[in-house]
Computed example of a mutant assay.
Amino acid sequence: MINRVTHQTIQRSTLGNLQLNLNKMSDLQGRMSGGKIITKPSDDPGGTAQAMALRASQRATEQYARNADDGIAWLSTIDSAVAASVSSLHAARDLTVQGANSGAMGQTSRDAIATAIDGIRDALLSTANTSHLGRSVFAGTSNAGKAFTVTVNPDDTRTYAWTGTPGASVERRLTSDTTVRADADGSAVFGDGAGSVFALLDSIAADLRSGVQVGPRLTEIDTRMTAMLAEIADVGARYGQMELAQSSTQKTLLDLKGQLSAIEDVDLAEIIVEIQTQEVAYQAALGATARVLQPSLLDFLR
């Protein structure tokens, strides 16, 4: 049996083919203008799944990078504060050595040294309450606002208290299984209560004013200074760890971007060639259609 082919059949078939060519050109133009091979999940289901997994890893890595940046800022603040505290304590030690020369120094000079030590104590207290973005760097997770508080007693003596919680530290996650401490234990650096460096300087100033020999206090100052230097070393080690993590996350981000680009981004040269090829095919189809559909109604009426 021979199927009957009419002009309407040819017209519909031709228009369908032309529309298919136009759809291909539109898809190629959309990819080139957007710069992406995958414009919707159906374009490449496997590639879409890989891209989604890579983007999840990218978001996690970006958060790790932000954590490292924030941790470095915390540790830089702590390092500066502890270094300043060591310098202040060195100055207090020098003054204590001067005050220990009781035979060569009168009470007026001792009182002057005591006043200078009071100033160093206040500077140390201010440094101990250093904060970063509104958070005290020496109080752990405490929201007290200050790492150390001072209470003036009725007899004009002072009581110092650390407001942090023992064992509660500020951590920054650098990888899925690695965290690094970003704060410092204020009680370890400056001491707490009667054992604090502030109370020690108060005692030295009181001894100077009362004529008591302050030479034995030098050992206590050295002990507190050793604790501060140990904290500087610890902060330096953690700082180095965060810098390594920062560098590693940046490299990981570059690798992830490269992998995403390989899956999603178009090859511009290739897509241009495809568009030109499709355009030639479309023009050829138009030419063929014009030849096939040339007969008109007048041709049949002749």
Rank of each mutant, 00 (worst) to 15 (best):
S248R: 02
A230G: 10
D234T: 15
L254W: 12
S247M: 04
T252H: 03
M228S: 06
V235L: 01
V235A: 07
Q241W: 11
Q246R: 09
L244D: 08
L256N: 06
T226N: 14
L253S: 13
D234I: 09
D234V: 06
L254S: 10
E231K: 14
L253D: 01
Q246T: 06
T249P: 02
L253W: 08
A237E: 10
L256D: 06
Q250S: 04
L244H: 10
K251F: 03
A237L: 11
G236D: 14
S248M: 05
A245Q: 09
Q250I: 02
L244Y: 11
T249N: 05
I232V: 12
L256I: 08
K251Y: 00
I232C: 00
A245T: 14
K257F: 03
K257Q: 15
T249R: 01
Y239V: 00
L256M: 02
M228K: 08
G236V: 04
L256R: 12
K257R: 14
G236R: 08
T249M: 01
G236I: 01
T226P: 08
L253R: 07
A237K: 13
L244C: 01
R238E: 13
L254Q: 05
A230I: 05
Q241S: 14
A227P: 12
S248K: 10
D255Y: 08
Q241C: 00
A237G: 14
D255L: 01
E243T: 09
Q241M: 09
M242Y: 05
E231Y: 13
E231W: 14
L254H: 10
A227K: 14
K251I: 05
R238Y: 14
K257S: 15
Q250E: 06
T252K: 02
G236F: 08
T249H: 01
A245P: 13
Q250V: 01
L244A: 09
Y239K: 07
M242K: 03
